[in-house]
Amino acid sequence: MTDGRVTSPRTAQIAAEFAERLDMLEEAGQVTPLARRLTEFTVAELADELDVAFTEDNAAPFVTHLAVALTRLNRGEPGIEPSSVVDDEIRGRLRERDAVQRVMTECEKLLDRQIPDSEVAYMTVHLCAIADEEGTR
């Protein structure tokens, strides 16, 4: 992803799946256009890398959290505080953590800002819950 536009069939599928949710968040000013595109890209990349099917039914909280977190960062607001509970929850989940970190490293380039480890940890918690539900661990 280099310019925020849909770049793959998977990204287009994700954009369509979560269009209503992301439209609502963007129209309410809770999500920036860049954060929306980065959310679609991130979810598509994670779906491909981890072989997880993200749907409105299983990933609505994840997509919302991701879009809002990326918006905070896009607006220059501080990241969320670290949590030992979150860290404990994802301990040993290196595959998921590494996947989120890899995609967030790409997002950092467009945000022109580093994404704090605490944000990556919270994103990973959501991803792990979905992966466990889908049986992809």
Score class of each variant (00 low, 15 high):
M1L: 09
R5I: 09
V6Q: 03
V6S: 03
V6N: 04
V6K: 02
S8C: 05
S8Y: 02
R10E: 14
R10D: 10
R10I: 15
R10G: 05
T11M: 08
T11R: 05
Q13M: 09
Q13P: 02
Q13V: 15
Q13G: 05
I14S: 00
I14T: 08
A15T: 10
A16D: 15
A16W: 06
E17L: 04
A19N: 13
R21S: 10
L22C: 05
L22H: 02
D23P: 06
M24Y: 13
L25W: 06
E26T: 15
E26S: 08
E26Q: 13
E27F: 09
A28E: 15
Q30M: 13
V31C: 01
T32I: 03
T32D: 11
L34N: 09
A35I: 06
A35T: 12
R36Q: 10
R36W: 05
R37G: 08
R37P: 01
R37E: 15
T39C: 05
T39G: 04
T39Q: 03
E40A: 03
E40H: 03
F41Q: 11
F41R: 07
T42D: 04
A44P: 06
E45V: 14
E45C: 07
L46P: 01
E49K: 13
E49S: 13
E49A: 13
L50M: 14
D51W: 05
D51L: 07
F54V: 14
T55G: 07
T55I: 10
E56H: 11
D57C: 06
D57Q: 10
A59I: 07
A60S: 14
A60Q: 11
P61S: 07
F62V: 06
F62R: 01
V63Q: 02
T64L: 10
H65L: 13
L70A: 03
T71F: 00
T71Y: 00
R72L: 08
R72S: 10
L73C: 07
L73W: 04
N74K: 02
N74D: 15
R75V: 07
G76I: 03
E77H: 08
P78H: 06
P78G: 06
I80R: 04
P82C: 06
P82A: 15
S83F: 00
V86Y: 02
V86S: 11
E89W: 04
E89M: 12
E89N: 09
R91N: 10
G92W: 01
L94F: 05
L94E: 15
R95C: 08
R95A: 12
E96K: 01
E96Q: 14
D98S: 14
D98A: 13
V100N: 00
Q101K: 14
R102C: 05
R102Y: 00
M104F: 10
M104H: 04
T105D: 11
E106S: 08
E106I: 12
E106F: 04
C107D: 08
E108F: 05
K109E: 10
L110H: 06
L111E: 11
D112H: 12
R113Y: 06
Q114H: 13
Q114W: 12
I115W: 03
P116W: 02
D117H: 01
D117S: 12
D117V: 14
S118Y: 00
S118K: 01
E119H: 01
E119R: 02
V120W: 00
Y122M: 15
Y122E: 15
T124C: 07
H126V: 11
H126L: 12
H126A: 11
L127M: 10
L127S: 03
C128N: 12
A129E: 14
A131N: 04
A131K: 03
A131G: 08
E133N: 09
E134W: 04
G135Y: 01
T136F: 04
